[in-house]
C-alpha cells in the first residue's frame, strides 16, 4: 500500500503535470539546474514534514482555525529550511532568494494537507508528502535541464556546448536567451504535459 502511495505522485498523479499545483515556483526557479534541485529538495522536506505534523495533530485541531494552524506549521518549516540553507548552502540560498520564503505559498503543500494528511494516519501522510515533493522535483529538474541547456549552454554551470560552436568563435550556435525568461518555463511544462499524456492515454480528459 505504501508503495502505491509513494509511486502515484511521481507519474500518474504528478502534482505539477496532472494536479497543476505549485506551478508558480516551477516557473521561477528553473533557469538553472542547481537552484531547481535545491528548491525541489526544500519543497520535498517541507511537504513531507508538514503532512506528517498535520496528520499527527489532525484530531486536535479546532476546525475553525484549521487553515491558520496549517499555515503556522508550514511557515515554521519553511523558515527552518531558509535558515539552514543560509548557514550551509549560502550561494544556493542567494540564488533562490525570496523563492525559499515563497514555498509557504506553494499550493502543493496545503493541497496535500487538505486532501490527504487531514484524513489519514501519520506514516502514509509523510510518504504522500515526500512523494508529492519528489514528483514536483522531477518536473522541476526536467524543466531546468532543458532551460539551462538551451538558454545558457551549461549544465550545473559546466559548459556542455563545445566552445568552437558559438558564433563568437566562428561557429554556428547561439544560446537561446528566451529560455532564461519565465514564459519558456510555462511552454516547457506544457510540452512535458503533452509528452506525459501521449505516454499514458488515460490521463486525457474525455470529450
Amino acid at each position: 500500500m505504501f508503495k502505491k502511495i509513494f509511486l502515484a505522485p511521481l507519474f500518474k498523479g504528478n502534482p505539477i503535470t496532472v494536479l497543476t499545483l505549485g506551478i508558480c515556483s516551477a516557473l521561477a526557479v528553473t533557469v538553472k539546474l542547481e537552484p531547481a534541485m535545491v528548491m525541489a529538495a526544500s519543497v520535498t522536506l517541507v511537504t513531507g514534514f508538514a503532512s506528517l505534523i498535520m496528520s499527527i495533530l489532525r484530531n486536535t485541531i479546532p476546525n475553525r482555525i484549521r487553515i491558520i494552524v496549517q499555515l503556522v506549521v508550514i511557515a515554521a518549516l519553511v523558515i527552518v529550511v531558509d535558515q539552514v540553507l543560509k548557514a550551509y548552502a549560502y550561494d544556493a540560498s542567494k540564488q533562490l532568494s525570496i523563492f525559499v520564503g515563497l514555498i509557504i505559498t506553494n499550493c502543493l503543500i496545503m493541497g496535500r494537507i487538505e486532501a490527504y494528511a487531514l484524513g489519514n494516519k501519520p506514516i502514509p501522510s509523510l510518504i504522500d508528502g515526500l512523494a508529492n515533493g519528489l514528483g514536483f522535483g522531477i518536473v522541476l529538474t526536467v524543466v531546468a535541464f532543458v532551460r539551462e541547456l538551451i538558454g545558457s549552454g551549461t549544465l550545473f554551470d559546466i559548459p556542455v556546448i563545445p566552445h568552437s560552436w558559438y558564433v563568437a568563435n566562428g561557429g554556428f550556435y547561439e544560446n537561446n536567451g528566451l529560455f532564461i525568461l519565465p514564459p519558456m518555463a510555462l511552454i516547457v511544462i506544457g510540452l512535458v504535459i503533452w509528452v506525459q499524456r501521449s505516454i499514458s492515454k488515460e490521463l486525457i480528459e474525455k470529450q
Binding site: T60, P62, I65, V69, V72, V73, A76, I79, V80
Partner: peptide, 23 residues
C-alpha cells in the same frame, strides 16, 4: 469539544508559543 472558544484560544496560543520557541 475541539470547537469551543476556550479550546480554540488555548490551542492557538500554545501552538504559536511552541513554534516561536523552535524558530
Amino acid at each position: 469539544n475541539t470547537n469551543s472558544n476556550t479550546y480554540t484560544f488555548i490551542y492557538a496560543s500554545v501552538l504559536v508559543v511552541l513554534v516561536a520557541a523552535v524558530l
